[in-house]
Amino acid sequence: MRRLLQNNGQLFMSQLKNRHVNTTGAGAGAGVTAQQKTKQQFSKAKPTDAVSRGDKFGAKYCMSLVEKYDYENYLSTLLLPQGMRPAAFALRAFNVEVSRSVSGQVSEPQIAKLRLKFWYDSIDKCFDPEADRSYVKDQPVLRELRRTVGNRKLNKIFLRRLVTARERAPNQAFETLRELEEYAEQTCSSMLHLLVELSGIKDMQVDHAASHLGKAQGIAMMLRAIPHTGRQQTVCIPLEVLVRHGVSQERILRSKRDDKGVEECVFEVASAANGHLKLSRQLLPQIPRVVRKIFLPAVATDGYLERLRRAHFILTDASCIKRDAILPARLFWKTLFNKY
Protein backbone atom coordinates (compact mmCIF):
# COMPACT_ATOMS: atom_id res chain seq x y z
CA MET A 1 0.00 0.00 0.00
CA ARG A 2 2.83 2.39 0.86
CA ARG A 3 4.55 1.70 -2.48
CA LEU A 4 1.26 2.18 -4.33
CA LEU A 5 0.66 5.54 -2.67
CA GLN A 6 4.23 6.61 -3.41
CA ASN A 7 3.97 5.67 -7.10
CA ASN A 8 0.56 7.32 -7.52
CA GLY A 9 1.76 10.47 -5.78
CA GLN A 10 4.89 10.74 -7.92
CA LEU A 11 2.88 10.14 -11.09
CA PHE A 12 0.40 12.84 -10.07
CA MET A 13 3.14 15.37 -9.31
CA SER A 14 4.92 14.57 -12.60
CA GLN A 15 1.74 15.11 -14.60
CA LEU A 16 1.02 18.32 -12.71
CA LYS A 17 4.54 19.63 -13.40
CA ASN A 18 4.19 18.87 -17.12
CA ARG A 19 0.85 20.67 -17.23
CA HIS A 20 2.38 23.71 -15.55
CA VAL A 21 5.35 23.82 -17.95
CA ASN A 22 3.12 23.42 -21.00
CA THR A 23 0.66 26.10 -19.94
CA THR A 24 3.31 28.58 -18.76
CA GLY A 25 3.89 31.11 -21.49
CA ALA A 26 1.14 29.79 -23.73
CA GLY A 27 -1.54 32.22 -22.58
CA ALA A 28 -5.17 31.18 -22.86
CA GLY A 29 -5.75 28.02 -24.91
CA ALA A 30 -8.62 27.03 -27.13
CA GLY A 31 -11.88 27.00 -25.23
CA VAL A 32 -15.43 28.20 -25.19
CA THR A 33 -16.00 31.38 -27.18
CA ALA A 34 -17.74 33.08 -24.28
CA GLN A 35 -14.77 32.40 -22.02
CA GLN A 36 -12.37 33.81 -24.60
CA LYS A 37 -14.41 36.99 -24.86
CA THR A 38 -14.46 37.33 -21.09
CA LYS A 39 -10.70 36.94 -20.90
CA GLN A 40 -10.17 39.49 -23.67
CA GLN A 41 -12.39 42.01 -21.92
CA PHE A 42 -10.63 41.38 -18.62
CA SER A 43 -7.20 41.82 -20.19
CA LYS A 44 -8.15 45.26 -21.45
CA ALA A 45 -9.16 46.41 -18.00
CA LYS A 46 -6.46 44.77 -15.92
CA PRO A 47 -3.09 43.01 -16.52
CA THR A 48 -3.41 39.24 -16.38
CA ASP A 49 -1.15 36.68 -14.72
CA ALA A 50 -0.59 34.77 -17.94
CA VAL A 51 3.09 34.60 -18.76
CA SER A 52 3.98 36.01 -22.18
CA ARG A 53 6.34 34.15 -24.47
CA GLY A 54 9.05 36.71 -23.77
CA ASP A 55 8.87 35.94 -20.03
CA LYS A 56 8.71 32.17 -20.48
CA PHE A 57 12.38 31.83 -19.58
CA GLY A 58 11.92 33.79 -16.34
CA ALA A 59 8.98 31.65 -15.24
CA LYS A 60 10.86 28.41 -15.92
CA TYR A 61 13.97 29.79 -14.24
CA CYS A 62 12.04 30.52 -11.03
CA MET A 63 10.44 27.11 -11.12
CA SER A 64 13.79 25.34 -11.58
CA LEU A 65 15.40 27.41 -8.82
CA VAL A 66 12.73 26.44 -6.30
CA GLU A 67 12.90 22.80 -7.39
CA LYS A 68 16.67 22.70 -6.80
CA TYR A 69 16.93 24.55 -3.48
CA ASP A 70 13.45 24.26 -1.92
CA TYR A 71 12.10 20.93 -3.12
CA GLU A 72 9.39 20.39 -0.51
CA ASN A 73 7.84 23.82 -1.09
CA TYR A 74 8.26 23.20 -4.81
CA LEU A 75 5.94 20.18 -4.56
CA SER A 76 3.41 22.16 -2.54
CA THR A 77 3.46 25.02 -5.04
CA LEU A 78 2.70 22.64 -7.91
CA LEU A 79 -0.60 21.83 -6.20
CA LEU A 80 -1.77 25.45 -6.12
CA PRO A 81 -4.43 26.60 -8.62
CA GLN A 82 -2.96 27.16 -12.07
CA GLY A 83 -3.56 30.91 -11.98
CA MET A 84 -1.53 31.28 -8.79
CA ARG A 85 1.42 29.07 -9.65
CA PRO A 86 3.62 31.48 -11.69
CA ALA A 87 3.31 34.21 -9.06
CA ALA A 88 3.89 31.74 -6.23
CA PHE A 89 7.03 30.41 -7.89
CA ALA A 90 8.27 33.99 -8.34
CA LEU A 91 7.87 34.65 -4.61
CA ARG A 92 9.46 31.33 -3.68
CA ALA A 93 12.37 31.97 -6.04
CA PHE A 94 12.94 35.42 -4.53
CA ASN A 95 13.05 33.85 -1.07
CA VAL A 96 15.54 31.25 -2.30
CA GLU A 97 17.82 33.92 -3.75
CA VAL A 98 17.74 35.94 -0.52
CA SER A 99 18.51 32.84 1.55
CA ARG A 100 21.41 31.87 -0.73
CA SER A 101 22.87 35.34 -0.33
CA VAL A 102 23.84 34.65 3.29
CA SER A 103 24.53 30.91 3.17
CA GLY A 104 28.20 30.09 3.62
CA GLN A 105 29.21 33.73 4.18
CA VAL A 106 30.55 33.36 7.72
CA SER A 107 34.11 34.44 6.95
CA GLU A 108 33.05 37.36 4.72
CA PRO A 109 29.93 38.93 6.28
CA GLN A 110 30.36 42.14 4.28
CA ILE A 111 29.67 40.25 1.06
CA ALA A 112 26.43 38.91 2.53
CA LYS A 113 25.40 42.43 3.58
CA LEU A 114 26.00 43.76 0.07
CA ARG A 115 23.95 40.97 -1.44
CA LEU A 116 21.09 41.59 0.97
CA LYS A 117 21.28 45.31 0.18
CA PHE A 118 20.90 44.43 -3.49
CA TRP A 119 17.74 42.40 -2.90
CA TYR A 120 16.31 44.96 -0.46
CA ASP A 121 16.72 47.80 -2.97
CA SER A 122 15.29 45.58 -5.69
CA ILE A 123 11.97 45.35 -3.85
CA ASP A 124 11.36 49.08 -4.25
CA LYS A 125 12.31 48.89 -7.91
CA CYS A 126 9.84 46.06 -8.49
CA PHE A 127 7.08 48.26 -7.11
CA ASP A 128 8.23 51.22 -9.21
CA PRO A 129 6.39 51.34 -12.58
CA GLU A 130 9.24 53.40 -14.06
CA ALA A 131 11.89 50.76 -13.36
CA ASP A 132 11.76 49.06 -16.78
CA ARG A 133 15.28 50.16 -17.69
CA SER A 134 16.90 49.17 -14.42
CA TYR A 135 18.73 45.96 -13.56
CA VAL A 136 15.37 44.41 -12.64
CA LYS A 137 14.74 43.69 -16.30
CA ASP A 138 17.99 41.72 -16.59
CA GLN A 139 17.41 39.50 -13.55
CA PRO A 140 14.83 36.73 -14.24
CA VAL A 141 13.67 36.41 -10.62
CA LEU A 142 13.21 40.15 -10.21
CA ARG A 143 11.50 40.37 -13.59
CA GLU A 144 8.98 37.75 -12.50
CA LEU A 145 8.60 39.38 -9.09
CA ARG A 146 7.92 42.75 -10.68
CA ARG A 147 5.28 41.22 -12.93
CA THR A 148 3.72 39.58 -9.88
CA VAL A 149 3.53 42.74 -7.77
CA GLY A 150 2.20 44.61 -10.81
CA ASN A 151 -0.74 42.25 -11.16
CA ARG A 152 -1.45 41.60 -7.49
CA LYS A 153 -1.83 43.75 -4.40
CA LEU A 154 1.05 42.53 -2.27
CA ASN A 155 2.30 44.02 0.96
CA LYS A 156 5.84 45.30 0.57
CA ILE A 157 6.47 44.81 4.28
CA PHE A 158 6.39 41.01 4.01
CA LEU A 159 8.91 41.05 1.17
CA ARG A 160 11.20 43.30 3.17
CA ARG A 161 10.99 40.98 6.17
CA LEU A 162 12.33 38.14 4.04
CA VAL A 163 15.48 40.23 3.56
CA THR A 164 15.87 41.97 6.92
CA ALA A 165 15.48 38.70 8.84
CA ARG A 166 18.57 37.34 7.07
CA GLU A 167 20.68 40.27 8.30
CA ARG A 168 21.20 38.29 11.49
CA ALA A 169 24.82 37.16 11.83
CA PRO A 170 25.30 33.39 11.28
CA ASN A 171 27.25 33.09 14.54
CA GLN A 172 24.66 35.00 16.59
CA ALA A 173 22.87 32.62 18.92
CA PHE A 174 19.18 32.83 19.76
CA GLU A 175 18.76 33.94 23.36
CA THR A 176 15.25 32.64 23.96
CA LEU A 177 12.72 30.35 22.34
CA ARG A 178 10.53 33.35 21.64
CA GLU A 179 13.36 34.94 19.67
CA LEU A 180 13.63 31.78 17.60
CA GLU A 181 9.88 31.87 16.93
CA GLU A 182 10.07 35.52 15.86
CA TYR A 183 12.80 34.69 13.35
CA ALA A 184 10.73 31.83 11.95
CA GLU A 185 7.71 34.12 11.67
CA GLN A 186 9.68 36.78 9.79
CA THR A 187 10.91 34.25 7.24
CA CYS A 188 8.35 31.46 6.76
CA SER A 189 5.20 33.23 8.00
CA SER A 190 5.91 36.25 5.79
CA MET A 191 6.05 33.97 2.75
CA LEU A 192 2.73 32.37 3.69
CA HIS A 193 1.14 35.80 4.13
CA LEU A 194 2.31 36.76 0.64
CA LEU A 195 0.85 33.58 -0.85
CA VAL A 196 -2.45 34.23 0.93
CA GLU A 197 -2.49 37.71 -0.60
CA LEU A 198 -2.17 36.09 -4.03
CA SER A 199 -5.45 34.29 -3.38
CA GLY A 200 -7.21 37.54 -2.52
CA ILE A 201 -8.40 36.17 0.83
CA LYS A 202 -8.47 38.63 3.72
CA ASP A 203 -9.40 36.97 6.97
CA MET A 204 -8.08 37.28 10.50
CA GLN A 205 -8.28 33.54 11.17
CA VAL A 206 -6.31 32.82 8.00
CA ASP A 207 -3.58 35.24 9.08
CA HIS A 208 -3.56 33.64 12.52
CA ALA A 209 -3.15 30.15 11.04
CA ALA A 210 -0.42 31.37 8.66
CA SER A 211 1.52 32.86 11.55
CA HIS A 212 1.49 29.61 13.54
CA LEU A 213 2.24 27.44 10.53
CA GLY A 214 5.17 29.66 9.54
CA LYS A 215 6.65 29.37 13.03
CA ALA A 216 6.31 25.58 12.94
CA GLN A 217 7.84 25.31 9.49
CA GLY A 218 10.69 27.70 10.27
CA ILE A 219 11.69 25.94 13.49
CA ALA A 220 11.55 22.53 11.81
CA MET A 221 13.71 23.75 8.94
CA MET A 222 16.33 25.12 11.33
CA LEU A 223 16.40 21.84 13.24
CA ARG A 224 16.96 19.98 9.98
CA ALA A 225 19.87 22.29 9.16
CA ILE A 226 21.80 21.53 12.37
CA PRO A 227 23.57 18.38 11.03
CA HIS A 228 24.79 20.46 8.08
CA THR A 229 25.83 23.45 10.21
CA GLY A 230 29.52 24.36 10.20
CA ARG A 231 31.54 24.89 13.36
CA GLN A 232 31.62 28.64 12.74
CA GLN A 233 27.83 28.88 12.71
CA THR A 234 25.60 28.74 15.74
CA VAL A 235 22.89 26.13 16.16
CA CYS A 236 19.25 27.16 16.42
CA ILE A 237 18.77 25.75 19.93
CA PRO A 238 18.20 28.85 22.12
CA LEU A 239 20.70 29.56 24.88
CA GLU A 240 18.01 29.43 27.56
CA VAL A 241 17.25 25.83 26.54
CA LEU A 242 20.93 24.87 26.51
CA VAL A 243 21.50 26.39 29.94
CA ARG A 244 18.40 24.73 31.36
CA HIS A 245 19.70 21.27 30.42
CA GLY A 246 23.41 22.00 30.84
CA VAL A 247 24.27 21.29 27.20
CA SER A 248 26.83 23.03 24.99
CA GLN A 249 26.44 23.80 21.30
CA GLU A 250 29.29 21.38 20.57
CA ARG A 251 27.25 18.52 22.05
CA ILE A 252 24.29 19.53 19.87
CA LEU A 253 26.49 19.32 16.77
CA ARG A 254 27.79 15.90 17.77
CA SER A 255 24.28 14.65 18.62
CA LYS A 256 25.31 11.33 20.12
CA ARG A 257 22.58 8.75 20.66
CA ASP A 258 23.32 8.28 24.35
CA ASP A 259 23.33 12.01 25.17
CA LYS A 260 20.07 12.56 27.06
CA GLY A 261 20.74 16.26 27.52
CA VAL A 262 20.85 16.83 23.76
CA GLU A 263 17.69 14.78 23.39
CA GLU A 264 15.89 16.97 25.91
CA CYS A 265 16.99 20.17 24.17
CA VAL A 266 15.87 19.00 20.74
CA PHE A 267 12.62 17.68 22.22
CA GLU A 268 11.80 21.07 23.77
CA VAL A 269 12.38 22.98 20.52
CA ALA A 270 10.56 20.37 18.41
CA SER A 271 7.64 20.47 20.83
CA ALA A 272 7.35 24.22 20.29
CA ALA A 273 7.17 23.65 16.53
CA ASN A 274 4.60 20.89 16.95
CA GLY A 275 2.50 23.13 19.18
CA HIS A 276 2.32 25.83 16.53
CA LEU A 277 1.48 23.22 13.90
CA LYS A 278 -1.44 21.94 15.97
CA LEU A 279 -2.75 25.46 16.55
CA SER A 280 -2.68 26.08 12.81
CA ARG A 281 -4.54 22.85 12.06
CA GLN A 282 -7.17 23.57 14.70
CA LEU A 283 -8.32 26.46 12.50
CA LEU A 284 -8.85 24.17 9.48
CA PRO A 285 -12.69 24.45 9.48
CA GLN A 286 -12.40 28.25 9.19
CA ILE A 287 -9.83 28.20 6.37
CA PRO A 288 -11.08 28.61 2.75
CA ARG A 289 -10.28 25.78 0.37
CA VAL A 290 -7.82 27.71 -1.76
CA VAL A 291 -5.85 28.71 1.34
CA ARG A 292 -5.69 25.11 2.50
CA LYS A 293 -3.59 24.36 -0.58
CA ILE A 294 -1.31 27.25 0.33
CA PHE A 295 -0.85 25.67 3.75
CA LEU A 296 0.27 22.31 2.30
CA PRO A 297 3.86 22.84 3.59
CA ALA A 298 2.38 21.72 6.92
CA VAL A 299 2.48 18.16 5.54
CA ALA A 300 6.28 18.17 5.15
CA THR A 301 6.72 19.85 8.54
CA ASP A 302 4.54 17.28 10.25
CA GLY A 303 6.39 14.46 8.48
CA TYR A 304 9.78 15.65 9.69
CA LEU A 305 8.65 16.15 13.28
CA GLU A 306 7.18 12.65 13.28
CA ARG A 307 10.40 11.11 11.93
CA LEU A 308 12.35 13.06 14.53
CA ARG A 309 10.11 11.68 17.28
CA ARG A 310 10.55 8.11 16.08
CA ALA A 311 14.33 8.66 15.99
CA HIS A 312 14.19 9.74 19.67
CA PHE A 313 15.13 13.29 18.66
CA ILE A 314 18.51 12.32 17.22
CA LEU A 315 19.09 14.96 14.56
CA THR A 316 21.74 12.92 12.76
CA ASP A 317 19.50 9.88 12.32
CA ALA A 318 19.31 8.77 8.69
CA SER A 319 15.53 9.12 8.58
CA CYS A 320 15.80 12.78 9.60
CA ILE A 321 18.48 13.69 7.08
CA LYS A 322 17.32 11.99 3.90
CA ARG A 323 14.47 13.26 1.74
CA ASP A 324 10.94 12.04 2.48
CA ALA A 325 10.28 9.61 -0.37
CA ILE A 326 6.52 9.42 0.17
CA LEU A 327 5.95 13.16 0.50
CA PRO A 328 4.41 13.46 -3.02
CA ALA A 329 1.90 10.75 -2.12
CA ARG A 330 1.08 12.38 1.22
CA LEU A 331 0.57 15.76 -0.45
CA PHE A 332 -1.68 14.14 -3.04
CA TRP A 333 -3.66 12.43 -0.28
CA LYS A 334 -4.14 15.66 1.68
CA THR A 335 -5.23 17.45 -1.50
CA LEU A 336 -7.91 14.83 -2.17
CA PHE A 337 -9.42 15.40 1.28
CA ASN A 338 -8.86 19.16 1.17
CA LYS A 339 -6.70 19.25 4.27
CA TYR A 340 -3.19 20.38 5.22
Score class of each variant (00 low, 15 high):
Glu67Ile: 00
Gln40Cys: 10
Arg53Met: 08
Glu167Pro: 01
Gly104Val: 05
Ala300Asn: 12
Phe295Cys: 09
Leu145Gly: 06
Gln15His: 14
Tyr61Leu: 07
Gly31Ile: 03
Arg309Glu: 11
Phe174Ile: 05
Ala87Asp: 10
Ala90Asn: 02
Ala45Ile: 10
Arg257Cys: 10
Ser76Asp: 00
Lys339Ile: 10
Gln35Glu: 14
Ser280Cys: 13
Gln105Arg: 11
Ile157Asp: 14
His228Met: 06
Lys153Gly: 11
Pro81His: 08
Tyr69Pro: 08
Leu114Cys: 05
Gln35Leu: 15
Ala131Met: 00
Leu177Ile: 14
Leu296Ile: 03
Ile314Met: 03
Asp121His: 15
Ala88Lys: 02
Cys265His: 12
Gly58Arg: 08
Phe118Cys: 03
Leu4Ile: 14
Thr229Pro: 01
Asp302Ala: 12
Ala325His: 11
Thr187Pro: 00
Ser255Leu: 06
Glu306Ala: 15
Leu80Val: 10
Leu162Glu: 07
Glu179Leu: 08
Cys320Lys: 02
Val163Asp: 03
His208Asp: 11
Leu223Pro: 08
Gln286Thr: 11
Glu185Met: 04
Thr176Ile: 06
Gln139Asn: 15
Leu277Trp: 03
Leu177Tyr: 04
Ile287Gly: 06
Glu306His: 13
Ile157Lys: 14
Phe42Thr: 12
Glu197Ala: 01
Gln233Asp: 14
Asp203Lys: 12
Lys202Thr: 14
Pro227Asp: 00
Phe174Ala: 03
Ala26Tyr: 02
Asn171Glu: 14
Met63His: 11
Lys156Ser: 09
Glu130Arg: 13
Asp203Phe: 02
Leu213Lys: 03
Lys215Val: 12
Gln233Thr: 13
Val106His: 04
Ala272Trp: 00
Asp124Ile: 02
Gly275Cys: 07
Phe332Gln: 13
Arg310Leu: 12
Arg168Leu: 08
Arg19Ala: 10
Ile321Val: 12
Glu67Trp: 02
Tyr71Asp: 03
Gly9Phe: 01
Pro81Met: 01
Leu180Lys: 03
Lys293Arg: 15
His193Arg: 15
Glu263Cys: 10
Ser101Arg: 06
Met1Thr: 15
Met13Arg: 01
Gln232Tyr: 09
Gly303Leu: 13
Arg224Phe: 04
Ile111Arg: 09
Val196Leu: 06
Phe174Gln: 02
Phe337Leu: 10
Gly275Leu: 11
Asn155Met: 10
Glu167Ser: 06
Gly261Gln: 08
Thr77Phe: 07
Gly29Ala: 15
Ile314Phe: 06
Leu142Val: 05
Gln217Ile: 13
Glu306Trp: 09
Asn95Ala: 10
Asp55Val: 02
Val96Phe: 00
Ala169Gly: 00
Lys156Pro: 05
Val266His: 06
